[in-house]
Amino acid sequence: MTLPPLPSIIVEPVVRAALLEDLGRAGDVTSDAIVPPDLITSLVLTARQAGVVAGLDVAALTFRLIDPSIEVEVRRPDGSEVVANETIAIVRGPARGLLTAERTALNFLCHLSGIATATATLVATVSGHKARIVCTRKTTPGLRTLEKYAVRAGGGSNHRFGLDDAILIKDNHIAIAGGLQSAVERARAHAGHMVKIEVEVDTLSQLEEVLELEVDAVLLDNMALDDLTCAVDMVGGRAITEASGRITAATAPAVATSGVDLISVGWLTHSAPILDIGLDIAATG
């Protein structure tokens, strides 16, 4: 798949913060002491296991912010499936800059590729059903935009990006508002005409009440499969249906058979294991 890169103006502040955290107060004292300033070398980014690539543009920016003369030749762009020992990219330039940026670039690339790989695995499990795999707001602070991009690289979709782009009414909102109807009415009075309203429900009786209020989407949280199937039938296309609650690759296919539109998975962004990617010297000269 072809995935448009994130604008540099969004990515650069995140990368700069990561580099500054690593460089500290004195820079890379190890590379400055050992590596000649005029030494040019090439490093090869290699997948050490099968997966899906995400974050190459972020990694490339990491290198360029350390030394603008560094060049990155992409062999397998974001969204590509790779096998073990496959070359992802070749990085060329001053050795000092390459080694200084190496760890931060790999941190981004391995983490984001891990998210893309986990997403692709889940997407494959629900193939043949209409359900789409979506991420949530359970993201690493400061990395939300990058992590949600990685979900797209893996073939998934994004839920809301923050508290400001959609209304999601949960149990605490309902309790504070004094009831479901009051919560929805307040939300509808406050929302702009482009803002959708979703309500989380745990039971079929709650769902019945919600449907009378004509909301845009319902979040069916931690429902048993029989109840989930019944819930989709009750909705009957009147709202978007979203299933959530400890979804895994083992349980996702059954959840998809219920007919839900979306399956939201928090662990994709907060707990997906990294994709192991190596960065090794190819040639020096």
Rank of each mutant, 00 (worst) to 15 (best):
V15H: 05
S205Y: 07
E212H: 12
I133S: 01
S271N: 07
M223P: 01
A59V: 13
S127A: 15
P5E: 01
R152S: 14
G266H: 03
S8D: 13
N107Y: 06
L279P: 02
V91M: 05
R76C: 14
K138M: 06
V126I: 15
R188L: 10
G97W: 00
H270L: 00
N172W: 12
V215C: 07
V210D: 05
G93W: 01
L20A: 13
T284E: 07
F108C: 02
D276L: 07
T100G: 05
R25M: 10
G237C: 06
E242K: 04
L204A: 09
L219K: 00
T269C: 06
R16D: 07
A150I: 05
T284Y: 08
T62D: 06
T248S: 12
A166M: 15
T46Y: 04
G114K: 05
K170R: 14
P7M: 09
D28K: 07
L211F: 03
I10T: 13
E200T: 11
D227H: 12
P13Q: 07
V195A: 12
V232A: 05
V123G: 08
D227E: 12
I90A: 09
V210R: 07
L20Y: 11
L6G: 05
A116N: 10
E86N: 05
A217M: 11
R137A: 08
A239Q: 01
G237Y: 04
V52L: 10
M234T: 01
V53W: 04
I167T: 15
C135R: 00
C110Q: 12
C230R: 15
D164S: 15
M234Q: 11
K138R: 12
A187S: 15
H173D: 15
I197G: 09
S258F: 03
D78F: 10
I247P: 00
V11A: 09
T117D: 08
D67P: 06
G192P: 04
E71S: 14
G114F: 02
G285T: 14
